[in-house]
């Protein structure tokens, strides 16, 4: 199931948070060799986890993290404007454009490529749904070359704006379009057995009705 959790609400979901930040460490540092800080809990976090981002999380039946993406408005502090304005030729600021970073599928999941594709597709459809709900036009974010293939295969290609570095160390900044057409493209290519369920509303934990909270 998909769950939206703000950073400040993560303490209410200790199992989910712990497995998410450990999965990020396993994926980004151990597998992809990004130069990232891992804390004493084995969590990969950075300064943008501390300014209340919104996590779009795929929760596995056992309550742990199956995959996630981290969302933030470009009208407040965000990674692309703080660190990649050289690539962007300035800053990108709009309430209609959100930043998306740290897109990850848990390396712990069983079921191989198919299971990974189901989770990444579910996360992308949730991202599109949110964008269409609020009238957003684009997501913007940074990624490394191997990630391109995941989005392209899913029918939601990232469009590169520019890059820094070369080879394995290359970091790319790019955009994703949000539209009904894109949603259809993703659905057309969705892997078999994708059970998305309802995509929940985005509400801070303190204001969620008890019934929905228990779900």
């Amino acid at each position: 199931m998909i769950r939206f959790v703000y950073g400040s609400d993560l303490p209410a979901f200790p199992r989910l948070a712990d497995s998410m930040f450990r999965d990020r460490a396993a994926q980004f540092r151990d597998r992809r060799a990004w130069d990232l800080r891992i804390d004493e809990n084995g969590w990969e976090t950075d300064e943008y986890d501390r300014i209340n981002p919104l996590y779009c999380i795929y929760e596995l039946p056992d309550g742990t993290h199956g995959g996630s993406g981290r969302l933030a408005p470009t009208t407040a502090g965000c990674m692309i404007n703080d660190h990649f304005s050289d690539i962007l030729g300035g800053t990108i600021e709009s309430p209609l454009i959100w930043e998306s970073t740290r897109f990850v599928v848990s390396p712990r999941i069983s079921g191989g490529m198919q299971a990974a594709r189901r989770i990444s597709t579910a996360l992308m459809l949730a991202g599109i749904e949110v964008g269409l709900r609020y009238g957003l036009t684009h997501y913007i974010g940074c990624y490394d070359p191997p990630m391109r293939r995941i989005w392209r295969n899913a029918g939601w290609p990232a469009e590169d704006i520019g890059a820094r570095g070369t080879g394995r160390d290359q970091i790319i900044v790019g955009v994703w379009e949000i539209s009904e057409q894109v949603r259809q493209n993703i659905l057309d290519r969705a892997p078999e057995g994708l059970r998305l369920g309802a995509i929940p509303p985005i509400v801070p934990h303190a204001a969620i009705p008890a019934l929905a909270r228990a779900a």
Binding site: Y6, S8, N52, L54, A72, P201, V203, P204, P209
Partner: peptide, 13 residues
């Protein structure tokens, strides 16, 4: 108070 996404009143407690 704690989010940046718009909210529908019918989704609140």
């Amino acid at each position: 108070q704690s989010g940046f996404a718009p909210v529908e009143w019918r989704h609140l407690d």
